[in-house]
Amino acid sequence: MKKQLLLFAFSALALSSCSDDDIQGYEMDMMKGEWKTVKREVISGKDDKTVISTDVPTGCSAKNITEYRTDYYTSYSAYTGVGADCQLNTKSEGTYDYNTDTKELVIKYKNDSPRKYQVVVLTSSEMRLKQMFNNIDENGDMIIDVSYISYKR
Rank of each mutant, 00 (worst) to 15 (best):
S147Y: 08
M132C: 11
Q87I: 02
F8M: 10
M142I: 07
T66V: 05
I23K: 15
D20L: 14
D55F: 00
Y98M: 03
S19C: 01
V119T: 04
W35N: 11
E41Y: 00
S147M: 10
T74G: 03
Y151T: 14
F10G: 11
F10A: 13
V146K: 13
S16N: 08
Y117W: 08
I23N: 15
I143C: 03
I136V: 13
S113E: 11
K39E: 10
S11K: 02
S61I: 02
R128D: 09
N111A: 09
Y109T: 14
E104I: 08
K108H: 00
I43R: 13
R128I: 08
V146S: 13
Y73V: 02
Y109M: 13
L5G: 04
F133N: 06
L129G: 04
E126M: 04
I52Y: 03
D22V: 12
V56L: 03
S11R: 01
A84Y: 02
D48H: 04
N64G: 05
D29W: 09
V82I: 13
V106K: 09
I143W: 04
Y76E: 05
P114E: 04
V82N: 12
V42H: 08
Q24T: 08
M132E: 13
D48T: 00
K39Q: 13
L105P: 14
S124W: 00
T123S: 13
Y68H: 05
T74L: 04
K46N: 00
S11C: 07
M28S: 03
T37V: 12
V51I: 10
S17W: 06
K110Y: 11
N89G: 10
K103T: 12
V38S: 08
S53F: 09
C86P: 15
T70F: 01
M28P: 00
N135I: 07
N111I: 00
T100F: 08
D112T: 05
L6Q: 05
E126P: 00
G45Q: 01
D85K: 04
N111E: 07
L129E: 05
Y72F: 09
D145S: 14
Y151M: 11
L129Y: 04
C86M: 08
E126Y: 05
K39Y: 06
Y96R: 15
C86D: 11
T74F: 06
G25P: 00
L129R: 10
G33C: 06
M31R: 10
C60M: 04
E67D: 09
T100R: 11
A84V: 05
Q4I: 00
F8C: 09
S17Q: 09
S113I: 09
L88K: 13
I149K: 07
K46H: 02
K39L: 10
S150P: 01
D29P: 13
L129F: 01
K32Q: 15
M142Q: 12
G140H: 02
N135M: 05
P114I: 03
L129D: 06
N111T: 01
M30R: 00
G94C: 02
I107G: 15
N135S: 07
T54A: 05
R40A: 12
Y96K: 15
L88S: 11
M1W: 05
D101M: 14
